[in-house]
Design a protein around this nucleic acid. Sequence first.
DNA 1: TCCGAGATTCACT
DNA 2: GTGAATCTCGGAG
Length: 193
Amino acid sequence: MKITKEFFNDTTLNISKKLIGKIITFESSEGVIKGIINETEAYTQDDESSHSFGGKRTKKNEVMFWDAGYLYVYFTYGMYYCANIVTGQKDRAEAVLIRSIIPIEGEDIIKKNRNWTKKTLKGLCDGPAKFCISYGIDKNFNGLNLLDKNPKIYLEDLNYIPKKIHNSTRIGISKAQDLEWRYYALEFDKKEK
DNA sequence: TCCGAGATTCACT
DNA sequence: GTGAATCTCGGAG
């Protein structure tokens, strides 16, 4: 079942936790890709390490000020893209960074996008930039609405329940490093309906 | 297996 | 001009 706008009617921190175990689906021209989200990070407007800290609105973080359910893609380190899901209510520039997924469908497409030749899937999608490459996400995806009627990319709930959600400090940032706003899960149960 | 350096484009100051 | 929510690869252990 598809995730609706009500899902985002919550705090950014809660949404970060709730996103663990949800499915992100992308209907590309090559075929459908599905993956379980197993790692996220929360970024709020009051967070020094967020692009939207202090409510400062720029061309780059514009999308973070939009309604919940939009995709915020930014470019970093000269080579990589990272994808966030905007969660803030109106005029709250908050988002959740997708750090890692577990592929469950379209592995061939992912491998092709990643130019992957190894037999094992280990290390295929365990990082925000790897996730973007896997799905073929680039800056053209910035500002897409996941809640559209017929989106190319959207969220689903396929009843994957994380056995345990861990939390820890965030990665790759230079400010507010003490905040434990990174959430991840190692194992999932599939709930039968 | 683990660690450290290099890569390289964009937006803001 | 500078620094960034990172990844990959090479070399050492």
